[in-house]
């Protein structure tokens, strides 16, 4: 059964869309991620215009992270000082990202660049996950790792005391990380938690307990602002598509949360890494294969 998406201006099979949403939600729930970096490329793969996929994914990211923020707020797991610093960087970043997206849309290179960015992000994340899993389980099975290690980041100027995280580091580091994640949010629609969390733990040396709450705080506010920017600059958010995705992905996430405890966590990580590699290979194939249509017309 097909139905018409008014902003994407195409009709799409509702069952494909619901399955996609449930699948994205299921993966998000199973692996504890926002799902933006899976939903955006998958929407493009099923034929949603790239700009609409990006804008609509931002809504899904906002919806899925905002409820998480509330629960972390109640548990007092958010480092507001760190969160606000990253949000400031993130706001500039997302504005920059949305402008780049608009420019790519205007010059017609959006699918080339977005595909390439997703491929790089997915491969880096998959490699990181698989490497970390292998390192912990195979190479250094009995070795304990120290999360907080001093690096060049701790030598940067403009130091500030983050009381909640008990850190005395330069504001430039969280600002820059926030900026980078903001660019990704504006440009690709993803929340960026899968990059932000490792950066907060390994680069900034934050405590794990406040990392998730703070990252969700940052992602929710940046996604919130990004929604307005996407609408004003790109007009690329499909209301109907967003609502279908939110409902179906919530169902998928709820199903996953009921079975996640029954599964082996290490096997899950490897499966997740492999899944990311499979999605990235589909996107890469799209760049190399001879296109069905050599000429594409889009009316302004």
């Amino acid at each position: 059964m097909n139905f018409y998406l008014p902003i994407a201006e195409i009709s799409i099979n509702i069952y494909i869309l619901i399955s996609l949403g449930i699948g994205i939600g299921f993966i998000s729930g199973l692996f504890g991620i926002g799902g933006g970096f899976i939903s955006s490329p998958l929407l493009i793969l099923v034929g949603i215009p790239p700009a609409v996929a990006v804008g609509t994914t931002t809504v899904q990211v906002f919806a899925s992270t905002s409820t998480g923020v509330v629960s972390h707020f109640q548990r007092k797991n958010i480092d507001y000082q760190m969160g606000v610093t990253m949000v400031i960087g993130g706001l500039f970043g997302t504005f920059f990202g949305v402008l780049i997206l608009n420019n790519l849309k205007n010059i017609g290179l959006i699918d080339n660049y977005l595909n390439s960015i997703y491929i790089v992000l997915l491969i880096i994340t998959a490699t990181f996950i698989l490497y970390e899993t292998a390192k912990v389980n195979i190479v250094h099975k009995d070795k304990k790792f120290k999360l907080h290690q001093h690096s060049w980041i701790h030598g940067l100027p403009l130091k500030f005391k983050y009381r909640k995280s008990k850190l005395y580091i330069s504001v430039l580091a969280p600002l820059f990380i926030g900026f980078l994640i903001g660019v990704l949010t504006g440009l690709t629609g993803i929340g960026g938690g899968f990059i932000l969390i490792p950066c907060m733990i390994y680069l900034l040396g934050m405590k794990t307990i406040s990392v998730i709450g703070t990252s969700l705080f940052n992602i929710t506010i940046v996604a919130f602002v990004s929604l307005f920017l996407q609408i004003y600059i790109n007009q690329n958010i499909d209301f109907v598509l967003a609502l279908v995705l939110i409902v179906s992905s919530s169902v998928g996430a709820a199903v996953a949360s009921r079975i996640v405890d029954l599964l082996d966590q290490e096997n899950l990580k490897v499966t997740f890494g492999m899944l990311l590699l499979i999605i990235s290979s589909f996107l890469a194939y799209d760049l190399f294969r001879t296109p069905e249509n050599l000429f594409i017309i889009n009316y302004v």
Binding site: S64, L227, I237, F239, A242, L243, S250, V251, V255
Partner: peptide, 16 residues
Amino acid sequence: LIVISLLLSLLTNLIF
């Protein structure tokens, strides 16, 4: 969109 997405998200979380 924000209001509806928040409500839907909360509702589905509550149900499931």
